[in-house]
Simulated scan of single mutants.
Amino acid sequence: MSLDETTKPGPHPHAGILPGTPEPFFLDKGEGEKSVVFDTLFTVLLTGDETEGQYDVFTTEGGAGDIIPAHIHPYTHEIFFVIDGAVHLWMDDEKGFKDDRVLQAGAFGYVPKGTIHAFRIESTARVLGVSSGGFARFFHALGTPTTKPGIPQPSEFYAPSFDQMRAAGELYGTVFRPDYKFLDD
């Protein structure tokens, strides 16, 4: 499922950074729609607006930190490709696959829709993510906009309220599972 015109949020603070339609464009290093979520920078490079709802592309940059809580995307597929550093990824499809792995630079993880997952940056990392079209702006709904590239400094960290997390989850098809525990988290 991708967001259609009736479910997309209104104007956002990043309007105009990406073209918003399927047309060729370039971004230089550090450019894109940027938001800080907790202690991590999410930079959206491409959205469903530019791909006719097919996919989104984004990066995640952060230092070693806490586990991102278990959650599930009922409609969204997501990939993790670690460019630098290390990221611990936990997954449970509740159909027999339950595993976790520390992904080092060059490693890849695929999280199909409907799979409970969580991750933790183990050492300063940059991750390239791809998701089903219309999902990437979840990070904006969950975080706070910034124009600064790179890993946020402690003074720039942003902790969303529970209400903000719930609203972002409802809008972008993310169900947080605070009750769920992976074996070693």
Rank of each mutant, 00 (worst) to 15 (best):
Phe119Gly: 02
Phe176Gln: 07
Tyr75Gly: 07
Phe26Pro: 06
Val44Asp: 01
Thr51Asn: 02
Phe108Gly: 03
Tyr180Ser: 07
Asp39Ile: 07
Thr124Asp: 13
Phe139Leu: 10
His88Met: 03
Val111His: 05
Gly96Tyr: 10
Leu3Phe: 04
Leu142Met: 15
Asp93His: 02
Pro19Gly: 04
Thr47Ile: 03
Phe135Ser: 11
Phe80Ile: 11
Val102Leu: 09
Trp90Tyr: 11
Met165Cys: 11
Ile151Pro: 05
Thr43Ile: 03
Val57Arg: 01
Phe135Val: 05
His77Ile: 03
Ala159Ile: 06
Gly114His: 13
Ala105Pro: 06
Pro11Phe: 02
Phe162Thr: 13
Asp185His: 13
Tyr75Glu: 15
Ala167Gln: 14
Val37Ala: 09
His73Glu: 09
Val87Ala: 01
Phe108Trp: 11
Arg126Trp: 00
Ala15Tyr: 01
Pro154Thr: 07
Asp4Arg: 01
Leu46Trp: 01
Asp84Arg: 14
Met1Asn: 09
Ala159Cys: 00
Arg166Ile: 13
Glu33Leu: 06
Pro112Leu: 10
Thr7Ala: 08
Leu18Val: 03
Arg126Tyr: 00
Ser132Ile: 07
Glu61Ala: 12
Gly62Cys: 02
Asp100Thr: 10
Leu183Asn: 07
Val44Ala: 08
Met165Asp: 00
Val102Thr: 15
His88Arg: 14
Gly53Tyr: 01
Asp163Met: 10
Gln54Met: 09
Asp93Pro: 02
Ile121His: 05
Ala168Trp: 10
Thr76Ala: 08
Thr174Glu: 12
His14Gln: 03
Asp99Ser: 10
Pro69Ser: 14
Leu18Ile: 08
Pro11Thr: 09
Met165Trp: 01
Gly30Pro: 12
Glu52Gln: 07
Gly114Val: 13
Thr21Ala: 11
Phe38Gln: 14
Val57Phe: 04
Glu50Lys: 00
Asp99Leu: 00
Glu33Ser: 14
Thr115Ser: 12
Glu23Trp: 00
Phe157Pro: 08
Asp93Trp: 04
Pro152Phe: 07
Phe162Met: 09
Gly106Met: 11
Thr115Pro: 07
Gly169Trp: 09
Gly16Arg: 02
Phe58Ser: 07
Glu94Ile: 00
Gly10Asp: 03
Ser35Ala: 15
Pro9Glu: 02
Tyr158Gly: 03
Thr144Asp: 10
Glu170Ile: 09
Val37His: 05
Glu170Val: 09
His71Asn: 10
Pro22Glu: 01
Thr21Pro: 00
Lys95Leu: 08
Thr47His: 02
Thr47Ser: 13
Gly169Val: 11
Asp66Ile: 06
Pro74Leu: 10
Leu128Ala: 10
Arg177Trp: 05
Ala86Ser: 10
Leu46His: 00
Ala167Asp: 15
His12Asn: 08
Val175Arg: 14
Ile83Leu: 12
Val111Leu: 15
Ser2Tyr: 13
Phe135Met: 13
Asp49Gly: 03
